[in-house]
Write a protein that binds this DNA or RNA. Structure first.
Length: 396
RNA sequence: GCGUAGGUGGCGGAGUGGUCAAUCGCAACAGACUGUAAAUCUGUCGCCCAAUGGGCUACGCAGGUUCAAAUCCUGCCCUACGCACCA
């Protein structure tokens, strides 16, 4: 069986979670041709973690991979240092080489949770970018005009507001485009915010006499607070999060995001997702559906056993408000003040913080008794609950 | 280089001699409500103190004036914008 031109799969690749394809007809033709294509994804390791938002292109890449296409994963060790202006309203700082290498360390391993590493070609873009001499850079720069650059939304806005735009930022899309030339990309995928850079790839490929890549942009994913998932917002769900944590974060998503998450972050078929959508419309409890979502995702990045455990934990601790079986364990001495112990172990940030929590009735011993005395002394082993999520077992 | 504006708590942004640990918004944390949430409402949100109060450290950095400084003066550092340079 020739997987390459499986039309059904191809259609799903081209639509599921996809924001836009440029040029759709051309890409479709390429895929239906049955010839393996070079699919490029470039990632600048500006942080060490992969969160569910960043996992989307990896999952898309995996789909291409399963169809038999060649995935080229560009580790932007060089471009990360230059700094992509795409998702920033202001200027980005340049990272040092050390920052970047540090970030890359565990990156590949985590990519392996999604992609088949054996079939993935990894390349560092410093391999060619670091070698460019000025003559060559000037040559690349010739392919673009200032007008084209200024047409870009976030440059245009900043320009009109008289805000600073450095020339370095103009260079970034050129470098990303040059990457496409170097790997001879047929297809490049990235988030919608990258549209300009993706198209720059086409311009530069053409300039170098190559066929232009088609570009596929995927939808941006909202994080736990409803804003775009981004490490700097602190609203991320990382694929390396512990099962309980991952499960809990997914449960705390607002209901409106359920279907989007199923579509972008799970492997459920579109038919199944459609059915879930109908269930929701006809009044199924979104909580239960969200539990399924959380379970599916935890299975994906951990395993079934862990996912079951995380679900049981959630049901017992948050739904039934029971005490968890497991909790961080802390040793203490009989007669020691709870405040001192919790501050020492950094469960609370300061004595003042602890007092405030006590005043707010947020600290409970063994599930029931609220503490009202800030100088509560520990007399025997007990389970302390701080707020809703933090549990600490204190042993004497 | 010249000029102008400015540097305040995690962020944005008030405050221009005492009533300022600093209005307000966001974020965060907690409580209520709920279907776990979200939304909403309430409270907290520098640190320390057995405390309806007291102390300490903070408003770019270093000095100074004053009984008293985030607020005034001097020097320094930094940022943005404008001008100059580019014919």
């Amino acid at each position: 069986m020739n997987k390459l031109n499986n039309e059904e799969k191809i259609n799903e690749i081209l639509t599921r979670g996809v924001e836009d394809v440029f040029v759709l007809e051309s890409l479709k033709k390429k895929l239906l041709s049955g010839k393996p294509q070079i699919v490029k994804l470039g990632v600048d390791p500006t942080g060490p973690n992969i969160h569910l938002g960043r996992a989307i292109p990896l999952r898309k890449l995996r789909d291409f991979q399963r169809l038999g296409h060649q995935v080229v994963f560009i580790l932007g060790d060089f471009t990360a240092q230059i700094g992509d202006p795409s998702d920033k309203l202001g200027k980005r700082p340049m990272l040092t080489k050390e920052n970047v290498l540090e970030n890359i360390k565990n990156y590949k391993k985590n990519v392996g949770k999604i992609l088949d590493l054996k079939k993935t070609k990894f390349v560092y873009n410093s391999k060619w970018l670091a070698k460019l001499n000025f003559r060559e850079i000037a040559d690349i720069a010739e392919s673009f005009t200032v007008q084209q650059m200024l047409a870009r939304r976030n440059f245009k806005d900043r320009y009109e507001k008289n805000e600073e735009i450095s020339l370095r930022e103009f260079l970034y899309p050129l470098l990303q485009g040059y990457d496409s030339v170097m790997v001879k990309a047929d297809i490049e995928i990235a988030g919608l915010d990258q549209l300009f850079n993706l198209k720059a790839g086409r311009v530069i490929q053409k300039y170098y006499g190559q066929p232009e890549q088609d570009v596929l942009t995927y939808q941006m994913l909202e994080g736990t607070d409803g804003r775009k998932m981004s490490t700097s917002w602190g609203n991320v769900i990382n694929i390396t999060d512990e099962p309980n944590d991952m499960f809990g974060k997914i449960m705390s998503l607002r209901d409106e995001l359920i279907i989007k998450y199923f579509t972008l972050c799970t492997d459920l078929s579109l038919v199944e997702i459609k059915k879930i959508e109908q269930d929701l419309v006809s009044g199924a409890n979104p909580r239960d559906i969200k539990m399924k979502l959380a379970w599916e995702i935890v299975v994906m990045y951990h395993n079934k056993k862990e996912a079951d455990k995380a679900r049981d934990y959630f049901v017992s601790v948050f739904q039934k408000k029971e005490n968890p079986d497991e909790a961080q364990e802390i040793k203490a001495v009989v007669g020691e003040k709870l405040m001192d112990v919790l501050v020492r172990e950094k469960v609370v940030s300061s004595n003042s913080d602890f007092r405030r929590l006590v005043e707010g009735g947020s600290i409970k011993i063994n599930g029931e008794e609220k503490i009202t005395d800030p100088f509560f002394e520990i007399l025997k082993t007990c389970l302390v609950k701080v707020g809703k999520h933090r549990f600490v077992k204190i042993e004497v």
